[in-house]
Computed example of a mutant assay.
Amino acid sequence: MCAAYSAVDRATLTVRRDIAVEVKIGVQHAPREIVLESGQSAEEVERAVADALAGKAQLLSLSDDKGRKVLVPADRIAYVEIGEPATRRVGFGAL
């Protein structure tokens, strides 16, 4: 982790690793949707989508929980489905 982060930033990053939001993006003229688990909050994802659709950005840029970036041209977005934040479960047990 970068030393430039403050203690508050480090705490926020730690919490976000434990919570994932599933995002599905439909792209015009593409047979499959893009599905990713994002460490961003549902509000941050919604704000990024709204900015892209409003013309403030030409690309919708989201990052997944593994640090990869997904870039989608704003004019090609058909729909975006944002799931509820889910806590990740680790270990063995009955579901």
Rank of each mutant, 00 (worst) to 15 (best):
A52W: 01
E44C: 06
L60W: 01
K66Q: 12
G91P: 06
D51I: 00
Q28L: 12
E84L: 08
L60C: 09
G91R: 02
V21K: 03
S41W: 04
S61M: 09
D9S: 10
G55L: 07
L71E: 14
L60S: 05
D65A: 09
L59P: 01
A94I: 01
R32L: 11
A54L: 06
T12I: 09
A7P: 05
G26M: 05
V80L: 09
A74H: 06
A20F: 01
V49C: 13
M1D: 13
E81G: 09
A11Q: 11
T14W: 06
R10I: 01
A48C: 07
G83T: 03
E43D: 15
E44M: 07
K69D: 14
G26W: 02
I19Y: 13
A52S: 14
L53Y: 00
L71P: 02
Y5H: 11
L71G: 09
V15E: 15
Y79N: 11
D75I: 00
I82L: 11
A20L: 10
L95Y: 06
A50V: 01
V15L: 15
A11H: 04
K24W: 03
A86W: 00
G83C: 09
A30G: 04
L59N: 12
L62Q: 03
T12C: 10
I34L: 15
A20Q: 07
I82C: 12
L60F: 05
T87W: 07
L95N: 08
L59E: 14
P31S: 13
E22V: 03
A94N: 08
